[in-house]
Lab assay of single mutants.
Amino acid sequence: MLDDRARMEAAKKEKVEQILAEFQLQEEDLKKVMRRMQKEMDRGLRLETHEEASVKMLPTYVRSTPEGSEVGDFLSLDLGGTNFRVMLVKVGEGEEGQWSVKTKHQMYSIPEDAMTGTAEMLFDYISECISDFLDKHQMKHKKLPLGFTFSFPVRHEDIDKGILLNWTKGFKASGAEGNNVVGLLRDAIKRRGDFEMDVVAMVNDTVATMISCYYEDHQCEVGMIVGTGCNACYMEEMQNVELVEGDEGRMCVNTEWGAFGDSGELDEFLLEYDRLVDESSANPGQQLYEKLIGGKYMGELVRLVLLRLVDENLLFHGEASEQLRTRGAFETRFVSQVESDTGDRKQIYNILSTLGLRPSTTDCDIVRRACESVSTRAAHMCSAGLAGVINRMRESRSEDVMRITVGVDGSVYKLHPSFKERFHASVRRLTPSCEITFIESEEGSGRGAALVSAVACKKACMLGQ
Rank of each mutant, 00 (worst) to 15 (best):
L45V: 08
E93Y: 09
G229M: 14
G444R: 10
L463A: 11
I436F: 11
E40L: 06
E319K: 11
A378R: 11
V401S: 10
E421V: 08
A10K: 13
R191Y: 04
K143D: 01
T405A: 02
D124Y: 07
D311F: 07
T354I: 05
Q106H: 04
S109W: 10
A201R: 01
F330N: 06
V310M: 07
D247M: 04
Q138D: 06
S411G: 10
K15W: 13
A449E: 07
H105N: 09
R43T: 14
E268F: 03
E395S: 14
R394H: 03
D247F: 02
E399M: 15
D267P: 01
G183T: 09
G388M: 07
Y215C: 00
G328E: 06
G227T: 04
E67M: 02
S441F: 08
V305C: 00
R275W: 12
R345G: 06
N180C: 08
M238F: 08
K458T: 15
K458R: 14
E300F: 01
E237P: 09
A329D: 13
D409W: 03
D198F: 00
G223H: 00
L144T: 07
M107S: 10
V71G: 00
H380T: 12
V154T: 10
C382I: 12
I436S: 03
P417Y: 11
V33Q: 09
C461L: 14
M381L: 12
S109M: 13
H50I: 04
A188T: 02
V389N: 02
I366E: 04
A11S: 09
Y234L: 03
F438P: 02
D78S: 12
V310G: 05
K31V: 07
H50T: 07
T326Y: 12
G299Y: 01
K346N: 07
G407S: 10
R186A: 04
R368Y: 04
F123Y: 15
D344V: 02
R5K: 15
A10S: 13
W257N: 07
R36Q: 06
G117F: 07
K56A: 07
A21E: 15
A384Y: 08
D311S: 10
F123M: 05
E157Y: 15
L271M: 05
Q98D: 06
L314C: 12
Y413I: 10
R250I: 14
V452C: 11
L75V: 03
G94R: 09
E322R: 08
